[in-house]
Design a protein around this nucleic acid. Structure first.
Lengths: 202, 202
DNA sequence: AAGATGAGATGACAAATGTCATATTGTCAT
DNA sequence: ATGACAATATGACATTTGTCATCTCATCTT
């Protein structure tokens, strides 16, 4: 019997998946939770064989839960299940030796077989479209500092507010902004932020 | 037997819901589609008793399909099933006499009972949180012009580009911007756009 | 017909943003 | 120790954005 913990904050999907998985004879959905903290507690109290984690959940993200599991060296398989194919999510998951990274776009009937691949054959399963993206995506040309800056630009911070937040001088913020515009070939910081967000760099 | 058409573009949710609904003895999921056009064709070819429509789908949105159904005066019940509680989505759905507007946050076990309410008792079912929102939400203080302007601001257009796009003068665009900042009590247009988007006004 | 109202324009000014050349400081490799 | 480099800062300047008072013109109202 394969015991499964399901962490997903969208009630309808969680309930439906739970029902779906429970129909498999060799699966047992032992716990269903709707946020990261509950997931982590449940994992510690009664470790399942495998956990399916959504990324964007309240309290702790799926990636944070993954990290905790690996740090505690618990012998639990982890599949990340998400809508988002953002590069840094994927990178982060890979860094912590995730066993699976599946998009919610995956047909539901493949989920069970993917779980068996992971448990029985120790395989790592990745959605094909993610693979594709990893191969062809142009990488983020922005430094961490620059990403942070653009995230504040998006919210409408003034240069001075950005400077205060990032502990930089007013002038430096404007220099960095200027750099960003060069790199991305944009005309102003708002356009740059919009573009960077589209590219999944923020 | 209640025949159901399920239109939802996220494969995993669609598959899981389909399985879930098929488990009810009095339900029959006769068709499953992943975009609006397919939904509309399927509806014309073999009309179901009820259709569950996601809003944000390729080709036609769920709301557009709803509109077509009502215009053709087909005797089909329609439940909109969506992640988004944006005011104009809800208004649009109501305008076309939708039979249900449920968030994907609804627990999955409630879905079946909601479907029966609609079919057997001719009731209209609305997610409680939506009801709440309709009651307490402060309404959009922005004019259409202002909304259009902010949508361009978001993308990083300059005042001049906005002027060209909306067929206004440079100065007028800046006057309108100034008005918006007053209304929303913000410091600059990017912040105003960010806020307005958060409020679901864009 | 006279006045009110609303969409849009103009121009002048202040503040914020973007550009650029140049400076300071710390770290790293040789 | 020296030079290369990266990160950060300064100041001067041009452009864009935001504010405000005032203007035009069409449409409504009474």
């Amino acid at each position: 019997m394969i015991s499964i913990l399901l962490a997903e904050d969208q009630n309808m999907l969680r309930g439906a998946l739970s029902t779906l998985l429970a129909m498999e004879d060799d699966f047992e959905v032992v716990q269903e939770v709707s946020n990261g903290e509950e997931a982590w507690e449940a994992i510690q109290n009664s470790p399942p064989d495998i956990t399916l984690l959504d990324i964007e959940m309240p309290t702790l993200t799926g990636l944070e839960v993954l990290k905790k599991i690996r740090e505690a060296k618990l012998p639990i398989k982890v599949i990340i299940l998400t809508t988002f194919s953002k590069r840094h999510y994927i990178k982060d998951a890979m860094k912590h030796e995730v066993d699976g990274y599946l998009l919610k776009d995956t047909p539901s009937h493949e989920l069970a077989s993917n779980i068996r691949e992971v448990i029985e054959k120790n395989k790592q399963v990745i959605s094909p479209s993610i693979m594709n993206q990893l191969l062809f995506e142009q990488s983020n040309p922005l430094s961490e500092r620059e990403v942070a800056l653009l995230q504040l630009v998006e919210k409408g911070y003034t240069s001075q507010q950005i400077a205060d937040t990032l502990f930089l001088s007013h002038g430096t913020v404007r220099n960095y902004t200027s750099e960003i515009l060069q790199k991305l070939q944009k005309q102003n910081r708002t356009e740059a932020a919009f573009y960077a967000r589209q590219q999944g760099w923020l």
